[in-house]
């Protein structure tokens, strides 16, 4: 393994890792506020990709319009999901909420299966994103540069929103204590809806980028990235935005490096995330950047 190959693999890992990070943010935001694993979050990736395929392929829109529509619809769907499947159960036992999330996820997948059919569709990647830069033996697809840059940009915006605005403060307050926040005169439902909107928008962006990286769209494409992004969020310390980014990057790099250094173990790539999850949880249950668990979180 020479230096150039290593750099090459690191770049690949970085682009995969930023995708995980982008999706993991949505999980971590929802978990921080509602203590809910939003299983349907991964399927938003799929919805976003399908909407873009329809926009570009079926109605032959220019890609920025199609992408905007995909983002908008995904965000809206996230809010609807919270409204329909999670809000009625906010006071119910946690197990009901989880089952509801799983049911919502399967409903989305199977609806997509009925509407779009089971055959995978090619993703019409806009030419703006294609192309390869060859430099000194390195082989860098343009997309591998676009993904981390865009991720960085989106995360920057998110951080400003969460840490510098009134809504962001309300979000953090709810994450700390929902009851008390509602007593302070904050419209908790609205803030939670905003949280879902933001998380879903990021998932939508992640879905578009994912579909361009792996240009094949099928109704179940969101499951694995979703699960891995969730694991990334746990890895970094769930509920912690920076942790989700860190966990995503770490998981992406590890996966790529595993395949690069041990090609024989490539089949185990999908199991790596789960093994890592179990090890991290056993050694450090709150993740890398997680704070010590309080009473109620146990």
């Amino acid at each position: 393994m020479d230096f150039v190959t290593l750099v090459q693999q690191l770049i690949n890992g970085l682009s995969l890792g930023s995708l995980y990070a982008l999706i993991a943010i949505g999980y971590t935001m929802v978990y921080g506020i509602l203590r809910l694993i939003n299983f349907a979050h991964g399927d938003l990736i799929m919805v976003s990709a399908y909407v873009a395929v329809m926009g570009i392929g079926l109605w032959s829109w220019p890609w920025p319009w199609a992408f905007a529509l995909a983002l908008g619809l995904t965000g809206l769907l996230g809010v609807l999901l919270e409204r329909g499947a999670y809000r009625p159960l906010r006071r119910a036992p946690r197990i009901s909420l989880l089952i509801s999330a799983i049911a919502a996820s399967f409903l989305l997948e199977n609806l997509a299966l009925v509407v779009a059919g089971g055959r995978p569709k090619p993703f019409p990647t806009p030419t703006w994103f294609t192309g390869v830069i060859c430099e000194g033996g390195l082989f860098i697809p343009r997309l591998s540069l676009v993904i981390p840059t865009l991720t960085l940009l989106l995360l920057l915006m998110l951080f400003i929103l969460v840490y510098r605005t009134q809504v962001g403060r309300a979000m953090r307050a709810i994450a700390y204590n929902l009851e008390t926040t509602s007593l302070m005169g904050i419209d908790v439902n609205r803030v939670i809806a905003v949280t879902f909107l933001l998380g879903s928008l990021l998932a939508g962006a992640g879905g578009l980028l994912w579909a361009m990286k792996y240009p094949q769209v099928n109704p179940f494409m969101g499951i694995l990235p979703g699960l891995k992004a969730f694991i990334a969020a746990v890895l970094g310390g769930i509920g912690n935005l920076l942790g989700a980014v860190l966990g995503g990057l770490l998981l992406g790099l590890l996966e790529i490096l595993l395949v690069a250094f041990f090609p024989a173990a490539a089949g185990y790539r999908d199991a790596l995330a789960f093994v890592l999850l179990i090890l991290i949880l056993l050694a450090r249950p709150t993740g890398l950047l997680g704070e010590r668990l309080g009473e109620e979180k146990l």
Binding site: I95, A271, V275
Partner: peptide, 28 residues
Amino acid sequence: FPVFRFRGDYLAIVTLGFGEVVRVLANT
């Protein structure tokens, strides 16, 4: 042994992970 060190969501996700690992093993 690892599973019952967790509760709630984490237990769910860890058991889900075992399901996935077994499938990967069956494949490889």
